[in-house]
Amino acid sequence: MALPSSVRIVEVGPRDGLQNEAGPVIATDIKVALINRLAAAGVSHIEAASFVSPKWVPQMGDAAAVMAGITRHDGVAYAALTPNLRGVEGAIESGADEVAIFTAASESFTRKNINCSIAESLERFVPVVEAAKRNNIRIRGYVSTVLGCPYEGDIDPSQVAAVSRELLDMGCYEISLGDTIGVGTPVRARKMLARVANEVPINQLAAHFHDTYGQALANLYAVLQDGISVIDSSVAGLGGCPYASGASGNVASEDVVYMLEGLGIKTGIDLKELAATGNWITQQLGRNNGSKVGLALGCSS
């Protein structure tokens, strides 16, 4: 299959990236500024917040304030992660354009993280999905550990396909396939995708590949050839891998956009502005920039 002419980048830095930051809680105005800068750079889909208990995810405790503080750009979807009914109600009140629910392809991972089975996790999402539908809000589904689990090792692609189909049937318009610990390789990624595409149309699938072992870009290039046209990434590579101390987690948005531009694939994103945003946020956080492209461009913020 030919490469897509354009790719939609789902920017997960403000949520999936910042929620893993150690140390003091990041100021609300910094989160708001990050989201505004990403939108100004041309990012059309931003995961802006997570409506979860501050007890469990302190960095996301100000989700409502963040959503209230951002400057909405036309054509930009502002999404929120909503693990339960209370979360989706908060997202609806905050004016989220889209909500996301998440489960995993690994029973062990699901039990370790949310203390229930995969089937039970899906049952818990029924009222969340119903509430979103009543309010005409789109639902996106995440499947973690699609290429490997820290507890079970390799994951059978048929299991990924089964869980993805459940989310589709539940009402998710798109399913994001997450290589949570970044152990995938191109051949394994394509094999997994081929099996999932038997259950879910390829145009309703997205790739969320972590870069723990430095394979994310190679894996993304592989699945682009098989029809993937939506990629999740994080500015400056924000967000580490909690299962490998010191390892990188999310693939950097700048690196993905640079690769796509080199392939002649449009994203609608201004790479220099994106890189400047990556440099700015890492300065605010006092951490190193995880984007090789961001470092190479040396953009001023």
Rank of each mutant, 00 (worst) to 15 (best):
Leu85Met: 11
Leu85Ser: 15
Arg86Ser: 05
Arg86Val: 05
Gly87Arg: 11
Gly87Cys: 14
Gly87Phe: 08
Val88His: 13
Val88Gln: 14
Val88Glu: 06
Val88Asp: 14
Val88Ile: 14
Glu89Trp: 00
Gly90Lys: 03
Ala91Lys: 03
Ile92Ser: 12
Ile92Arg: 14
Ile92Thr: 15
Glu93Asn: 10
Glu93Gln: 11
Glu93Ser: 15
Ser94Phe: 05
Ser94Trp: 07
Gly95Trp: 01
Gly95Cys: 03
Gly95Phe: 02
Ala96Glu: 13
Ala96Pro: 02
Ala96Cys: 13
Asp97Ile: 03
Asp97Phe: 01
Glu98Thr: 13
Val99Phe: 02
Val99Met: 03
Val99Ile: 13
Val99Gln: 10
Val99Lys: 10
Val99Gly: 04
Ala100Thr: 15
Ala100Leu: 08
Ala100Ser: 15
Ala100Gly: 12
Ala100His: 04
Ala100Val: 12
Ala100Phe: 10
Ile101Gly: 07
Phe102Thr: 09
Ala104Met: 08
Ala105Gly: 11
Ala105Val: 00
Ser106Asp: 03
Ser106Gly: 09
Ser106Met: 08
Ser108Val: 07
Phe109Ser: 12
Phe109Leu: 12
Phe109Asp: 14
Phe109Met: 11
Thr110Ile: 02
Thr110Phe: 04
Thr110Tyr: 01
Arg111Pro: 11
Arg111Ile: 12
Arg111Asp: 08
Asn113Ser: 12
Asn113Cys: 06
Asn113Val: 00
Asn113Leu: 08
Ile114Met: 14
Ile114Asn: 07
Ile114Gly: 07
Cys116Ala: 07
